[in-house]
Design a protein around this nucleic acid. Sequence first.
DNA 1: GCATGCGTTCCACTGAACGAGACGACCGCG
DNA 2: CGCGGTCGTCTCGTTCAGTGGAACGCATGC
Lengths: 256, 256
Amino acid sequence: MIGRVDAVLGALGSRAETLGISEIARRTGIPKASTSRIVAELVEHGYLERTDAGVGLGLRLFELGGRAARPLDLRRLALVHMADLRGATGQTVHLAVLEGTEVVYIEILRSRSTPPLPSRVGGRVPAYATGVGKALLADLPPERLEAHLPERLVPVGPRTVTDRELLVRELAGIRERRISYEREESAPDVGCAAVAIRGEDGEPIAAISVSVHLGSADLAALGIAVATAANAIAREAAKARYRGAGGSARRRRQAR
Amino acid sequence: MIGRVDAVLGALGSRAETLGISEIARRTGIPKASTSRIVAELVEHGYLERTDAGVGLGLRLFELGGRAARPLDLRRLALVHMADLRGATGQTVHLAVLEGTEVVYIEILRSRSTPPLPSRVGGRVPAYATGVGKALLADLPPERLEAHLPERLVPVGPRTVTDRELLVRELAGIRERRISYEREESAPDVGCAAVAIRGEDGEPIAAISVSVHLGSADLAALGIAVATAANAIAREAAKARYRGAGGSARRRRQAR
DNA sequence: GCATGCGTTCCACTGAACGAGACGACCGCG
DNA sequence: CGCGGTCGTCTCGTTCAGTGGAACGCATGC
């Protein structure tokens, strides 16, 4: 049942649109009568809303979304340091987490000096094609890397690395030097320096980055500033005993 | 089933905390075994996350929340005008919608000149105790007002109007002059001028306000600026054929 | 060791969820 | 205007997904 609810919500959330019952049914593969019933119940509870143009995601999600634990925690830890970094560099600053094979943007402090970026708070981009994503992938133990790479590396931007071996080698380099660079891998004309942030247990919990017009700034110099901010956030996380999400067996063992 | 899911999500969202299964069960009245199963399924789909401290709302809600139709639409219509208003007044600007007996804040552009406000994007406050709420209540047809007032008007701030007749009379005055004022009804030391924004069909779709230290500014003068911004937003809404949420019978009739 | 509380799993039960089909409303087209 | 197609909702017999009490292992405190 929750799978069906998720499918309906996902159909409406994938492109922030309103759809009719029949179209939702087509997209989710759920029969029309069932779709109608599920939608009616979701509307009743505020998760969906009816408009003249069809059904859209409802205010209840907006309210609950603002209370999601990880964004709240990470923002609390990172926001002042992000603002510091934006102040120091004059560029757009991102905070993102790794989720499956993608990064989800938690917070974006925008600057006019940076080109318009396709990134969106709450949005997802394939991790391998972004600076923050590569920083996070590089910080994983090698045996866990495979789970976070899709089978095929599809081009996202003009210079996305789609060769798996090349990418793995790049990640090894990032692991060594800790700073990840992106050059037009996710969007044209965009460069970026990113660093993973570690939680109390040394595991990566998020990554922070500065984005620029490619070629307009020295990425290596920016990388040092980003690493500085990442360290400050990591220290806050350690102080708060913060470790991100996941009650996994691995973490359970370490805690006991 | 969706009612139970909503109860679980609501228990975790009401105070942005993490809880154990047993505590969720106690708060929702759902038996522990069922709670455990529902939680497991919600975790599997990303709506909840497990941490060391318990279960919290998950990233999926964060992602979907950012795609809720009404906040997206209203922000698109209102954001530049809100920024204009903040620029002109130097104060914090709110955008809110009426939902049941409460307002939900859609966007808040904060200013340092305004005292720290308890309002929060995605948060709820009783409508009768806020400037934006009273503006929206006043703009309702009288026969629909009762549905948006709670049985008992509970004090929220030091000067909340808790006498029903007094409030109804005040709403009538707001209906006449259109500008709603708030003086410490929702929080101490806070004054506010607010105006309802109408959609294409003339129905109230949201309200916009400026908040100040009470006594630090002329609320009537601010009210005129707020009305100016509300008009501009209403014009955008009309241009976009925007009418807010609700596929009600009343609206259906007018559309045909 | 005992008591208490936690979270998970099991399993018999049942009623909530299910989907095919019907139907009225609406729309576009000839 | 009639027809065909699509929409969203409702009906109803079916069934299986969801349910909750009980059991259980684990952790904690006394």
